[in-house]
Design a protein around this nucleic acid. Structure first.
Lengths: 349, 349
DNA sequence: TTTAATTAAGTAATCGATTACAAAAAAAAT
DNA sequence: ATTTTTTTTGTAATCGATTACTTAATTAAA
């Protein structure tokens, strides 16, 4: 694998007997260069197979046209879709995306931030990990003057823009939907309350109960992790109760799936006896034999908007700090796991 | 957002009244620097909040410690898992990963390659798109002397290393499993035969039939795309036949899922009447009410090994071109969609 | 005590592109 | 024909770190 000598603007300038400055300007379509020279340089550059060294350019310009994205995990449908949204929006602007995973560890998160800052990225997008309680590592980003945009999972840091779902409303909508299906004893499989998103979903859940004059029962709230097993356990726990729930609103799809599996193995009919609603609209929810009702977070849209917020930020004067907070509306995809009307319809046939 | 002045080695050298060269050497733990100076520099650098400018370093050293990964789609479980494997292996070596998507378009692929080469990445990992028939854009990578490793989907380019699944064996195993379950009229939902992987799965399928003295019936082969609808259509087509199949080996999980949905809606019992095997071991296959038998491609392992191949390559003398071809063994996860013994067992209870 | 060997630090070029400033060439104005 | 203006190009510094080559300082050997 021979390392072909790299062609530089100096090689072009020697060949044409002009200065490297002229070559540089010609290649950048600087209007101060005559059309004749510009075309000649362009032609020669192509002939010599010249490739601009973006490192040198970045060093000089102070911009790399790279941005970093930090997510807990890359192989979650939600996050990869957000990333795709960011990419779609930023690629046309010449940006490249460096993806990092925190694996839900704040230590990794801090390390990734450091590495990204060292690589001189032009901006950072991030969804904080579950273990992120302090903000020092995040403030470092601000100190460097690097634009930062939180998406989905944010943490309160003054001056940082964010694009999130209206999780409160989502929790409200999901619960309200269950109530409209006739459920009254609604259990909630919550996520880690340390994360704003889960807290807000929980708050929305409570608000919907209150607005419908249903008493809130703390025994119906089980904290789960986003795992199937966690959902199974939750049902085991809930079905110990005197008054069993007639609905489950899970803050995550995996826990919802586990709950459904456990309910089925107990021969409980869904949605007749118990309605189930999940959260995230993971692809599998709609492929199930019993498709699961789930809350969509419009991840790709979230990514696109986060990218737009970033673009605005770099356009603006760096000395002015503007904090922009975008809140996206959730969308409920009602499927069989909570759709009693549909079942009645089928029975009617 | 004030852009704090960047601290350079010159600032440190001025502060300590030593040369920048000494600072650089001290920071790099060069043995020619006295312990005293080394410690002093380290302390001062920390105090001044010095951050190495990796651009300048990369420009000088000719290495960026960034690698590019090009995949058709990032939000496919298989690809994101491979990426995760690459990451796990490469992060300890100080590499960062730039992820690009081709969206199955060779034009995008070429563009991404160009962009990556311009950014001076130290290596490229890629899984070619379905539309990649020519290799010119790939040869560019070689011309630059940039290490390249194909994973999963490769295309024949002399001198390029690859890490792939033994798709032939996988096809053979899947088919053999179906035969062992008593199936004789096995249909194959193949993928795009232009891709080696699908061709090999198909060949393995045929070989297993032959070895078991089952005649190959071309009517039982339907080309599908990796979509649910495609699987539904395939079953519709197959069930037009006089002799309906008693098994389906799909080269993709999504088509398998579609097939199962269609079979169920036709009240065909799985696995009693028809056994179904998918491919890729997508997460949803095991979460289904009727879990789907599927071939696992050990994606994370694939990523790790691809990374190791890359690391070997950069270690070696660049003037020697070594082509390494790794073939990984597939693993069949037998689940209810093709497990008749399990069903008999259940009935026996 | 002088010389040789070793260690530590400095000088300056380099990586490749950009750009402020200067200079030359061409065109326009007097 | 000369001066002014405009256009085009060149010179050289710069971004920040690395490193070949020297030089200075220290230690060991004669």
């Amino acid at each position: 694998m021979k390392n072909k000598e790299k062609v530089t603007i100096y090689d072009i300038s020697k060949r044409l007997n002009i200065s490297a400055a002229t070559v540089s300007r010609a290649l950048n379509n600087n209007p101060k260069i005559s059309e004749k020279t510009r075309k000649l340089v362009a032609k020669t550059a192509a002939e010599m197979n010249y490739k601009q060294n973006r490192l040198a350019q970045a060093l000089k310009k102070g911009r790399t046209n790279n941005v970093g994205v930090i997510v807990p995990y890359i192989n979650r449908s939600f996050f990869s879709s957000v990333i795709r949204g960011i990419e779609e929006e930023l690629t046309p602007h010449g940006y490249h995306i460096i993806i990092c995973q925190s694996h839900e560890e704040v230590a990794n998160e801090a390390e990734q931030i450091n590495a990204l800052l060292n690589t001189q990225i032009d901006g950072i997008f991030m969804s904080v990990s579950k273990t992120t309680q302090t903000t020092e590592h995040i403030k470092k980003i601000q100190e460097e003057g690097t634009p930062l945009v939180f998406f989905d999972r944010k943490i309160d840091v003054p001056g940082v823009s964010s694009v999130v779902l209206d999780d409160y409303k989502a929790g409200y909508m999901a619960t309200d939907h269950l109530i409209k299906e006739g459920c009254r004893r609604i259990a909630h499989l919550s996520g880690d309350i340390n994360l704003e998103i889960y807290k807000n979903r929980f708050e929305g859940f409570k608000a919907a109960l209150k607005d419908n004059e249903i008493e809130f029962n703390p025994a119906y709230v089980i904290q789960t992790s986003s795992k199937i097993e966690s959902g199974i356990q939750a049902v085991e726990e809930l079905w110990e109760l005197e008054q069993k729930p007639d609905a489950i609103f899970s803050a995550g799809d995996y826990a919802a799936l586990g709950a459904i599996q456990e309910l089925k193995s107990r021969k409980i009919n869904i949605p007749k006896d118990v309605c189930v609603v999940g959260f995230s609209n993971e692809p599998f929810t709609k492929y199930m034999e019993l498709p699961i009702t789930s809350m969509d977070q419009t991840p790709q849209m979230m990514g696109k908007i986060a990218a737009q917020v970033f673009l605005e930020q770099v356009k603006e004067d760096k000395t002015i700090s503007v904090e922009k907070r975008v809140v996206l509306p959730p969308e409920l995809f009602i499927r069989n796991s909570s759709n009693r009307k549909l079942i009645n319809l089928e029975n009617a046939v």
